[in-house]
C-alpha cells in the first residue's frame, strides 16, 4: 500500500505542493498541507478505486485542505512568497521586477472569488484537463469552462487596473 502512495507522491507531489504554495504563499505551510493530503489519502486508500486516475481524488483532498487553511488563515502572507522567487541568475533590477510582478499576481489571485480561483489553480498549477477539474470539484463541464474563461479575464483585469 505504501508503494502505491509513493507512486502517487512521485506523480502528483510537486503539483499538489505548488497548488498549496499558491494558496498559502509559504513553503513550510505548503509542505504541511501536501503531507496532510497524502496522509489522508493513505488512510482512505481502501476507499479509492485503483483502476481510476488518482489525480482528481488527490486534488480533491488537497483543495479541501487548502479551503480549510484559507478559512482559518484569512490573510495570505503575500510578502513571504519566497516559493516563487526561484529566479535564474539575473540582474538586481530583473530580480526586483520579477518579485514585484509575482507579488501583484499573488494579490490579484487572492482578490479573485474562490470559485474562479479554484478552477484557475487546478488548470494552471495542477496542470489538469477540463475533465479532471470536473471530477475534482464535482462540477459540470460547462461550468468549468465558464469559470475558467471568466476567471482568466478577471485576473487579467485585476492586474491591469491594479485593483488588488
Amino acid at each position: 500500500m505504501q508503494d502505491l502512495l509513493q507512486d502517487m507522491v512521485k506523480t502528483y507531489g510537486d503539483k499538489i505542493y505548488r497548488l498549496a504554495l499558491r494558496y498559502t504563499g509559504d513553503r513550510g505551510q505548503a509542505e504541511d498541507l501536501t503531507q496532510e493530503t497524502f496522509l489522508r489519502a493513505y488512510k482512505n486508500l481502501n476507499r479509492f478505486d485503483q483502476d481510476k486516475d488518482a489525480g482528481p481524488w488527490l486534488f480533491k483532498i488537497a483543495t479541501n485542505l487548502c479551503r480549510n487553511w484559507l478559512r482559518d488563515n484569512r490573510e495570505t502572507p503575500v510578502e513571504s512568497l519566497e516559493g516563487f522567487s526561484q529566479m535564474t541568475a539575473s540582474s538586481p533590477e530583473n530580480i526586483y521586477f520579477k518579485k514585484e510582478s509575482e507579488k501583484e499576481l499573488a494579490l490579484a489571485l487572492d482578490s479573485l472569488p474562490q470559485k474562479y480561483r479554484e478552477v484557475i489553480l487546478l488548470k494552471h498549477v495542477g496542470e489538469m484537463s477540463y475533465e479532471e477539474i470536473c471530477k475534482t470539484l464535482d462540477l459540470q463541464m460547462s461550468l468549468v469552462k465558464n469559470r475558467l474563461y471568466r476567471g482568466r479575464f478577471l485576473l487579467r483585469d485585476l492586474l491591469e487596473k491594479g485593483n488588488v
Binding site: 507531489g13 510537486d14 526561484q86 499576481l105 490579484a108
Partner: peptide, 23 residues
C-alpha cells in the same frame, strides 16, 4: 488575456526529504 494565468505555473519542487518524512 490568459497570460497572467499562465504565469501562475512554476517549477518549484517538493523538498527532497519530503518522501522520507512522509514514510
Amino acid at each position: 488575456a490568459f497570460t497572467p494565468a499562465d504565469n501562475l505555473g512554476s517549477t518549484v519542487k517538493l523538498p527532497a526529504e519530503f518522501l522520507g518524512r512522509l514514510n
